[in-house]
Design a protein around this nucleic acid. Structure first.
Lengths: 199, 199, 199, 199
DNA sequence: TATTAATCGAGACGGTACGTCGAGTCTTTAC
DNA sequence: GTAAAGACTCGACGTACCGTCTCGATTAATA
């Protein structure tokens, strides 16, 4: 739709979405995710905590899983910019996830959002789309450059690379539950490049 | 009660645990996991499918998550034996998981069991204990040998190694949902070794 | 603000109440009463049907019950005038109700309005006030004349008489749901007089 | 089904209906009817008051209206027996209703049950069936005898008679809300006979 | 004619209840 | 003693409605 049309079209009557309510719901969602995980997550609980009605929740999110993913993605900061070094550029792609997991109980939020993305179709779509935009596509660009410079093998596959880079992080967050030491993302990027190194 | 007494007198009154029922419950559990995922998983559903009473289920499993992990682990075959080559020995550690995921809808069973292990404490314990015995401990042995032969760096960490080996598999199973091509486990083992290679 | 000011200055700026909207709301109310009864009656439904906003409804009626009573009373025609014969004068008091019940689904409208009057205080007030003006007071006049002529006993009680006259109609409308045959009101008036006849 | 069959047929496994729970639910239902009327009646409220689950309520009653009617009918005592005098026999048919209405807030219970019977099909069925058995059928017998003795007219109609007898009571209970004075039922029976008297 | 206040539709909001389903416990009957 | 059947309390599900509110648009009396 063009700007022209947007102006001529009659503007919607009635109130707009309450941003206060939206923020309260997302915050309540995060608390619920932290305390109850995925199976124990309850929309009623979010409504109670966020002083919102379930109607409002269902009005704005296609599913509760999608809401969980939204709540988690809101925690993930923008990646650092202006980085030149290839290893750092790759590190920057997963550093925001590491950062989000490290703050407070961000750990649990990411974990639960991931489960939501697995169990719920809408949530999965949202999650994969974020991953594609924020990680997979940029990663492909960097790796293409590195392959051109013969730093990595020419037969690299973007999905193999992506999962080599990010897979270990999932294991740490989901299963071993160990702490994320300083420089964790950098180590992952380095190991990934080593795994795909030329020769 | 002493071992003596246990052997001589009481002879345990009443019938023993019904293996038929146990098998039916585990099979029903897998079906439920495949069709409903983790959040939608229902004990009532398992009882209905398995023609079992809920009492029986709760009698034998500490939690439904633990039951899910049991149902999944039952799918994972024993690893190949008699392998000598280090890469193949490592491959053999994750090959059973790959195999279980490939048969039928094993994919979904593994996935749901993993979520159960995350959300449910008993299930997590069971899962991590299996992982420790079947993968982490053997992996540590092989890697120690390789480190001694200077194939891999001396500063290797078992958890870093484990997650480098198995993390990509989780990404594939949980998130990207892509197919597992032939030789997937071997590729993982190879990449892991490359990531930890000496020099 | 004093009464004086209220009368002199403000002169009410802005548009007056929309009669179109009012009529649409009352019609929608009747449809809702017919289809959903009292417990299932919904203001949202009336707003949808009548293309009105809930605000408009709540602006003009103190309660939804009162609105239902209004909608029903609007169906009840004025009583016939110029009748001399006492039995016909009494008949004329309930004939309008009979008439309203007979047209279309008026039956259901009366029924639901009666329930609204029972459950809702404002509605009850409205209903009883109508009954007092249209039926009880005129009935008292006729009966006083008849008592003076020794047609009915001197110890008649207006409430006993009223309920003897109109009670059977409620039973028919509310409970037995039977059809109202021609001359029903006349029969009621006759039986009431017989019940109170002198000697 | 014969007794024989009942014995050979496999007896149902599992627990029986809890009478404690049933009684608590009916008592809670009455309280809810008294306090909230019909439109404001809430199953959640009954469950809270009666410490019962909604599941249990819906398991045993086809509709909440039917539950309300049950709760009200439980208040109505058995009619007096051994009465010979025709007027007293007729009085005895409605005396139990009068009695139930007089005790405590029985008034409101009867009123709300009647509305439930109007709005809800199952409840209506239950109510009419009770009325048929307890009032209409016995009334028909008495009136037939009286018609044979020329006490009442030969062209009497059972439904006309029933509504003449009981209709005034509905008016008093539902609309005028006046008190029921001693001997109210007897007055109704007398007036009804007068209305149908021969000559 | 421009201002201004009341009205209208649309609909978002926090709540409560709906009727259903599942969790985990308990009781009854059968073997 | 174990098992199936199933009733029990509790609480969540996703939807509908209540009564209040805010928003633009419209309309008619006042300035």
């Amino acid at each position: 739709m063009s700007e022209q049309e947007a102006k001529t079209k009659p503007r919607r009557q009635g109130p707009k979405r309450s941003e206060t309510s939206k923020a309260a719901i997302l915050e309540a969602t995060r608390e619920e995710m932290i305390e109850n995980g995925w199976r124990g997550f309850s929309v009623d609980g979010v409504a109670r905590r966020g002083r919102a009605s379930k109607q409002t929740i269902y009005r704005w999110w296609p599913s509760i899983g999608a809401m969980c993913v939204d709540a988690a993605l809101a925690l993930i900061p923008d990646p650092p910019t202006g980085v030149r070094d290839p290893v750092e550029r790759i590190t920057a792609l997963i550093l925001p996830i590491e950062a989000a997991a490290r703050i407070g109980s961000g750990h649990y939020v990411i974990r639960t959002a991931l489960m939501a993305a697995i169990d719920d179709e809408d949530a999965g779509e949202k999650w994969r789309s974020w991953l594609q935009t924020q990680v997979r596509a940029p990663l492909r660009m960097v790796l293409a450059e590195l392959a051109a410079k013969h730093v990595i093998r020419r037969d690299w596959d973007i999905d193999d690379a992506l999962e080599t880079l990010i897979g270990p992080l999932w294991h740490r967050l989901l299963i071993s539950r160990g702490p994320l030491r300083e420089g964790y993302s950098l180590a992952l990027a380095t190991r990934m490049l080593a795994a795909f190194a030329d020769e």
